[in-house]
């Protein structure tokens, strides 16, 4: 979090407003903003080419030229970290988008129709739940070949039931509320009521869950890269960097593995904090 003091109040003030004055949430939002900016502007702000090899700096530790040192192949760790933010954030973003849309669709349909539709959809969600996400990813990699596509598809499917289960339960509660029933009595179609009134009212809670999922998806995808099943070398990726760096650990160089590890932890915590705060705020409003 050393980056924070560099930014003046002008940057933090709007975030603090969004966070409702909560310092922890403001910090989390700041972390996510910094990460996003870093990912988008990676080529402009990275001090080195992430793939450029500087053999003289191999496992050098922190130096003025390489702030976070260089890895075993002499590549700049900071630059790889910044470029790694691209795959690191893009993968979970796709996972969260797909799983949110899919999960909401399934959850709301199950809640709205009830009966047989609910039974089928709920069983289907349980089926996916009972199947380990990593195993699904490994199978898909075997079918589709290595690369980020298979893990992202697998995680999108695996995360959909988390969203679906939540969406179903909050949609069920909302459907039982008289304002939804008033629209039914007015003669609106189920579709119009769901899109116009039910979805907007359950959206904050679903988004809170998705924000938390973002962190977990990031961790899962990093784990797959770490296992060599995700993003392929030499592309910069946090998970793969930990894997590369783990051998350097034996030679006493901490930074190549520690830096991406810390990046993952900080990002996951930031997403969870933001998600929890959204959920808290909804709960407060409900009261």
């Amino acid at each position: 979090m050393t980056a924070l003091p560099l930014h003046r109040r002008g940057f933090l003030a709007p975030l603090a407003r969004v966070a409702g004055g909560d310092k922890l949430v403001t910090a989390a939002l700041a972390v996510l903003t910094v990460l996003t900016v870093a990912a988008v502007l990676a080529p402009l702000i990275a001090p080195h080419d992430p793939d450029a090899v500087d053999l003289s700096a191999t496992l050098s530790g922190s130096t003025p030229d390489h702030l976070l040192g260089a890895d075993q192949s002499g590549r700049d760790v900071l630059s790889r970290l910044i470029f790694g933010a691209r795959t690191g954030l893009l993968g979970p973003l796709v996972v969260v988008l797909v799983s949110t849309v899919l999960g909401t669709l399934i959850g709301v349909s199950a809640a709205w129709h009830g009966g047989a539709v609910d039974a089928v959809l709920s069983r289907a969600m349980e089926l996916v739940f009972s199947f380990p996400a990593l195993l699904l990813a490994i199978i898909l990699v075997a079918v589709l070949g290595p690369g980020p596509t298979a893990p992202v598809i697998a995680m999108s499917v695996a995360y959909a039931p988390y969203v679906g289960r939540l969406a179903r339960s909050v949609a069920l509660r909302e459907k039982g509320r008289p304002y939804i029933q008033a629209y039914q009595v007015q003669g609106w179609s189920g579709w119009m009521i769901c899109v116009g009134h039910l979805l907007p009212n359950i959206a904050p809670l679903v988004l809170a869950q998705s924000a938390i999922n973002f962190g977990y998806a990031l961790m899962d995808l990093a784990a797959l890269s770490f296992l060599g099943l995700g993003v392929q070398p030499p592309a910069a990726d946090w998970g793969a960097m930990i894997n590369d760096g783990s051998q350097a650990l034996l030679q006493g160089a901490m930074l190549p593995a520690l830096a991406p590890g810390a990046a993952i932890v900080i990002t996951v915590v930031a997403f969870s904090t933001v998600g929890e705060s959204i959920a808290d705020r909804v709960a407060r409003r409900e009261r």
Binding site: R177, P178, Y179, A182, V185, Q186, H197, N201
Partner: peptide, 16 residues
Amino acid sequence: LQMVFQDPYLSLDPRV
């Protein structure tokens, strides 16, 4: 037929 419900706090969409 139309209906007026019991709970005034839950019978209006909070966003409308």
